[in-house]
Design a binder for these strands. Structure first.
Lengths: 97, 97
DNA sequence: ACTATAAATCGGATTTTATCGATATATGGT
DNA sequence: ACCATATATCGATAAAATCCGATTTATAGT
């Protein structure tokens, strides 16, 4: 759990949006065909207006920071919030800051 | 209280160090001649190895984000943590994230 | 083997951030 | 008024982040 890496990941509005949308997939990704239990399909995040490659980069940064998990299912990759890491980060920040 | 601005301010090791040092001024700034009640004198932070102008810039970013307060006393400017803003930020982040 | 779709990676353009030395501004003391 | 000290601001440079389109890689279906 790299606090600095997580802070950098959070210090960007698009990535913050992605994390927030993932709290309510049903509400924010009504067009997804797949069941939400698997997570949210990567391509769904292009709704933020950024290109496929940019979205992929943001998802990679969130994933490397440990803030989301990803699972490949067939040709798709599904993302979920990693609540464990998020909670641990908040705890440490509350202690350290 | 601008959450994004605060996150950007925190997403930098030097600024994070400054905030942490300010939790224990007596320990981290033993060379300060002034009483610590006033805060920590700006020049003290040059102990992080950065130039005076760079330190001044970092302090300005922390101040604009509301994470520290500053008070001029004579020719010096003293900095303290702004515990109110820090606590409010942590609360909001814990709610929002 | 070929085609289609999803996602990652590459290469490059642009913007933002970090840093410095030099200079300007503010204050205090002589 | 002048000099010394503390801090802020300016201008330049280098590094990092953001973003895109094009290409590559992975998987699925025919």
């Amino acid at each position: 759990m790299d606090k600095d890496e997580i802070l950098k990941a959070l210090a960007n509005p698009a990535r913050m949006d992605i994390l927030n949308w993932l709290k309510n997939p049903e509400e924010h990704f009504p067009t997804q065909e797949h069941p939400f239990e698997m997570g949210v399909c990567a391509s769904q995040f292009e709704r933020c207006g950024l290109s496929q490659s940019t979205v992929s980069s943001h998802l990679g940064i969130l994933h490397r920071a440990g803030l989301v998990t990803s699972k490949r299912v067939g040709q798709w990759i599904f993302y979920k919030r990693n609540e464990e890491t998020i909670a641990a980060f908040l705890q440490q920040l509350t202690r350290d800051l």
